[in-house]
């Protein structure tokens, strides 16, 4: 097979696409679905910027064949807010200055979302362990850890 008709539930909306088997998930999300919140930083799985959630789990979209996640729910950063109401992590990232250039932000947010689902009151070390695969060149990470901590505390 070189092309497969795939159904993805992207940010809650069912999308049916004809996908070439060589297409990466990041490419389909960016090119075919026009999602600007999908950021590719390295293409080798070393920076975490392209992370999206597949059935709720953080996955590197630059290193995933799109056809292998057909039928699944895909959440990009565009899907985090509920209408105009931001997710508590988004609020917290804004409030704590946890972003500068913003390129790593979608991956950081989505991986943090998963972390707080399985560990609602993480320690600073838990956050660092969970986000170790996400590089940020701007912030020095302090404020990212602060923001995730605060979002967790706010949710309790």
């Amino acid at each position: 097979m070189r092309r497969i008709v795939c159904t993805f539930v992207v940010n809650g909306v069912t999308r049916e696409l004809l996908v070439e088997t060589n297409a990466l998930l990041s490419e389909v999300l960016q090119d075919d679905l026009g999602l600007k919140g999908v950021h590719v930083g390295c293409g080798t799985g070393d920076c975490g910027a392209c992370t999206v959630l597949v059935d709720g789990l953080p996955v590197l979209s630059c290193s995933t064949l799109a056809v292998t996640v057909r039928g699944k729910e895909i959440t990009t950063v565009e899907g985090m807010a509920n209408g105009t109401k931001l997710h508590p992590l988004q609020e917290s990232f804004i409030e704590h200055g946890a972003l500068q250039c913003g390129y790593c932000t979608p991956g950081m947010l989505l991986a943090s979302k998963r972390l707080l689902e399985i560990n609602p009151s993480p320690s600073r070390q838990d956050i660092k362990d969970a986000l170790a695969g996400h590089l940020c060149r701007c912030t020095g990470y302090n404020k990212i850890v602060d923001a995730v901590m605060a979002a967790a505390e706010g949710e309790e």
């Binding site: 975490g48 590197l60 695969g133």
Partner: peptide, 8 residues
């Protein structure tokens, strides 16, 4: 180091 790499 990367949780994502360990998951995939």
């Amino acid at each position: 180091g990367s949780v994502e790499v360990r998951r995939m």
